[in-house]
């Protein structure tokens, strides 16, 4: 099942399938190593539910929900 990163739950794992952002945002996303095929794990969300913190390629980074919208992630279908 492929969903936007925004919809991922805490501690859910997945593999990035597509990054739809272009321009500066797209470039920043790629510079930090969020490219298709990369496994990620959601670590948590800030107290106000935004931004989201993720683990990728042995380090942690955080991005806003509206930035996570551009990233499609394949997650295990857990029936929900």
């Amino acid at each position: 099942m492929i969903i936007p990163m925004r919809l991922m739950k805490e501690h859910q794992k997945g593999i990035i399938r597509r990054v739809r952002a272009t321009g500066e945002l797209g470039r920043r996303i790629r510079d930090l190593g969020l490219t298709p095929g990369t496994p990620i794990e959601v670590q948590g969300r800030a107290p106000l539910r935004d931004p989201v913190a993720i683990k990728v390629r042995h380090f942690r980074l955080t991005l806003r929900n509206n930035e996570a919208d551009y990233i499609d992630v394949e997650v295990e279908d857990n029936g929900s």
């Binding site: 920043r28 930090l32 380090f59 991005l63 930035e67």
Partner: peptide
């Protein structure tokens, strides 16, 4: 807004 995308260092 500029992208937020920020590393959370160890």
């Amino acid at each position: 807004p500029t992208p937020f995308l920020l590393e959370l260092p160890t």
